[in-house]
Each structure stands twice: as structure tokens, then as C-alpha cells.
């Protein structure tokens, strides 16, 4: 059984000029793998991630034939049932720790809260678990960080704290939405290494949302390429550079390359037909 099955997912937002479809009927599945979703801003990749957690605020609407987590359909679930799903079965790491951590709560209290929301446990137990988790995300002085506030942390530390918090209820699926875009390249590799190790150790499925094609190609197992709310192509991540779709090729060619210098960069020529082509299935 797949960890996640998504059938015909739409995300719609009513606007003054009619309904805007941010995601337009995509289907994909996730096993115990690292699945990358790439695309430009506005392609619907983040909306897809949020829709799986049912985190789209009204008046936005999520419509799907089925979104199943280990076989359980979440479309019919109410908010109370969803709170059991979020964190415990799927969690999400957001882009910028500066805006996603509570600024007036210590790091330790936030991690303990995440743990105690989902398990009946004593405070001492939760504290021990939180310290273990901080150690698992390679924080050298867990006791000190436990007592610290988020503003005392660097970006890379903040992101590791987020990961610790998201993984402490032991979810099956982790959605990481641009988890390293706000970080420096050298810190980026560290954070990715941590995500990779934890996802492997715990046998989780990872959905990695990013605009960075090179990163996704080297980090993931499989990639979905999204364009204006649809999946235009899927491929093995290590074969991303051999991708066929003109959109994917255009994105790849527009990147400046250190190993192949050229005076002018190729500019993506958008074909209106890409928008109308039916979505490719992202099922395994």
C-alpha cells in the first residue's frame, strides 16, 4: 500500500473575475521514497503540499476524488479528525523558520508541545524526548538550545528545530516546502543531510517541494514537474537532465552553468499548449 494516494486534486480560489484554479486535476502517489515537486512560482506546487494537509483557508476549496493516507481518505474528515492526522501521520516543514516558529515560546516548550499534543506523556518524558530529537538533528548543545528562544538561533539552527518539531510525533510522511531556500549553500547541504538521514532511518515518505532543479535532481528519487497547476512531466530524479518536455528543458537551459559558460542564457519561450495539455499521472 502506498503511503499517499492523490486522485484528481483541484485547488480553487474564487476571485472577482471568476474561479482561479491553482491546482488543476493532478494525481500522484508516494511510497517510501523522496518525491520532488518542482516548478516556478505560481505553478501550484506549494498549494499541492498544503492541500494534502487540508491547510487551504476558505474561500479556497480543495476538491479531489481521493486523498488517501495509508488507505484512509482524508477528504471526508472534519477538522477534529484532521488534527489527529496533522503531525501524527503527515507533517510539514515550511520555508522560513523565522516566520514558522513561535517567537515568544522557548524552543524546548515548542517541541514538547508538538510531542504532548499527540501522545499522553509526562513532562519529564517529553523533555527527554525533545532533547533526544534535538540531538538527532545534530544540535551540539541540546540543553542550551532547549532553553533558548527562536530569535537566538541562526537560520540553519531554526530549520533544524523545525525538523525536530515536525518529526517528534513520528509521522509517516514529511512534506518539506522549500526547506532550504532561506539558507546558505553550505548550511543547506547539512540540513538536507539531516532530512535524508531521518527519513531513511524512520522509513518515511518525503515530498520535497522546490524551485531548484539541480537540488531536486541530486536529492530526490523521483520528480514531478508542475506547470500552471498541472503535472507536465515525471521522471527519475537522476534522469532530470535528460527530461523531454520543452518546459523542463527550458528551465534547465535557462540556468547559468559553471561547467559550460555561454555569453547569453536561453530564455524560456512559453507555449500556450502546455497549459492545456492534460496532466501526466505521477503514480508509481
Amino acid at each position: 500500500m502506498n503511503l499517499l494516494d492523490v486522485d484528481n486534486l483541484w485547488v480553487k480560489f474564487p476571485t472577482r473575475t471568476g474561479i482561479f484554479d491553482a491546482v488543476r486535476g493532478i494525481s500522484f502517489s508516494l511510497g517510501q521514497e523522496r518525491l520532488g515537486i518542482v516548478g516556478e512560482s505560481g505553478s501550484g506546487k506549494s498549494m499541492t503540499g498544503r492541500a494534502i494537509l487540508k491547510l487551504i483557508r476558505p474561500p479556497g476549496q480543495i476538491i479531489a476524488d481521493r486523498i488517501a493516507i495509508e488507505g484512509d481518505d482524508i477528504i471526508a474528515m472534519n477538522e477534529r479528525q484532521m488534527r489527529k492526522v496533522r503531525g501524527e501521520r503527515i507533517s510539514m516543514v515550511m520555508q522560513d523558520p523565522k516566520f514558522s516558529l513561535n517567537p515568544v515560546m522557548t524552543v524546548g516548550d515548542q517541541i514538547m508541545e508538538a510531542y504532548r499534543t499527540h501522545t499522553r506523556s509526562s513532562k519529564t518524558d517529553a523533555k527527554r524526548k525533545a532533547l533526544e530529537m534535538l540531538e538527532a538533528v545534530s544540535i551540539r548543545a541540546p540543553e542550551r538550545v532547549f532553553r533558548a528562544y527562536p530569535h537566538e538561533m541562526s537560520g540553519g539552527m531554526g530549520q533544524r528545530i523545525m525538523i525536530a518539531m515536525m518529526l517528534i510525533p513520528d509521522p509517516r510522511i514529511l512534506i518539506a516546502d522549500e526547506p532550504t531556500s532561506a539558507l546558505d549553500v553550505s548550511v543547506q547541504t547539512q540540513v538536507l543531510g539531516i532530512i535524508d538521514r531521518l527519513v531513511k532511518e524512520r522509513g518515511m515518505g518525503l515530498i520535497f517541494i522546490s524551485h531548484d532543479l539541480n537540488l531536486v535532481s541530486s536529492f530526490c528519487d523521483r520528480v514531478l514537474i508542475m506547470y500552471s497547476g498541472r503535472i507536465v512531466e515525471t521522471c527519475q530524479a537522476d534522469k532530470l537532465h535528460e527530461a523531454q518536455h520543452p518546459y523542463t528543458r527550458g528551465l534547465l537551459n535557462s540556468l547559468p552553468r559553471l561547467d559550460a559558460p555561454n555569453r547569453r542564457l536561453e530564455v524560456l519561450q512559453r507555449d500556450p499548449a502546455w497549459r492545456d495539455a492534460p496532466s501526466v499521472s505521477g503514480r508509481i
Binding site: 549553500v185 553550505s186 547541504t189 547539512q190 543531510g193 538521514r197 539541480n214 559553471l258
Partner: peptide
């Protein structure tokens, strides 16, 4: 060297041993 290999998208050995 570290900066360049990190931006090539390859996790460098040093970066991994930092963990």
C-alpha cells in the same frame, strides 16, 4: 573550495562530517 562544491549541489565530505 567548500563553497564551490556546496553550490555544485553535491553534499561535500566535509559538510557531511560536520554533522
Amino acid at each position: 573550495k567548500h563553497l564551490l562544491s556546496a553550490s555544485m549541489g553535491l553534499p561535500t565530505d566535509e559538510a557531511l562530517s560536520d554533522l
